[in-house]
Computed example of a mutant assay.
Amino acid sequence: MEVMQGLTKKLDYDEVKSYIESIGLMLLSEDYVNALTPLSCLCHCGNHFTISLNNIKKGRRCPKCSAQRLSEKNRLSFETVKNIFSSQGYLLFSEYINSRKKVKFVCPNGHIGEITLSNFKRGSRCYQCLKEMRFYSKREN
Results as ranks from 00 to 15, higher is better:
residue 116 T to G: 08
residue 88 Q to Y: 15
residue 134 R to Y: 12
residue 102 K to Y: 01
residue 38 P to R: 05
residue 51 I to C: 04
residue 140 E to A: 13
residue 129 C to E: 07
residue 101 K to C: 08
residue 111 H to P: 08
residue 39 L to K: 01
residue 17 K to N: 04
residue 96 Y to G: 00
residue 67 A to N: 14
residue 13 Y to R: 03
residue 57 K to V: 05
residue 60 R to W: 12
residue 122 R to Q: 14
residue 46 G to P: 02
residue 102 K to D: 09
residue 24 G to L: 01
residue 33 V to R: 07
residue 38 P to H: 03
residue 42 L to Y: 06
residue 34 N to Q: 03
residue 140 E to P: 00
residue 28 L to Y: 04
residue 75 R to W: 02
residue 36 L to A: 10
residue 121 K to D: 00
residue 21 E to L: 05
residue 94 S to N: 06
residue 18 S to E: 11
residue 106 V to Y: 04
residue 76 L to A: 05
residue 119 N to K: 13
residue 35 A to M: 08
residue 137 S to V: 10
residue 42 L to A: 11
residue 114 E to N: 15
residue 44 H to G: 03
residue 63 P to H: 08
residue 119 N to S: 12
residue 60 R to D: 09
residue 40 S to A: 14
residue 41 C to R: 00
residue 33 V to Y: 06
residue 16 V to A: 05
residue 112 I to R: 15
residue 56 I to M: 11
residue 100 R to F: 07
residue 40 S to N: 15
residue 69 R to P: 04
residue 69 R to E: 12
residue 36 L to E: 09
residue 48 H to M: 07
residue 28 L to S: 04
residue 38 P to Q: 01
residue 68 Q to D: 10
residue 45 C to P: 02
residue 89 G to A: 10
residue 55 N to S: 11
residue 78 F to T: 01
residue 103 V to T: 00
residue 72 E to H: 10
residue 105 F to A: 03
residue 20 I to T: 02
residue 17 K to H: 00
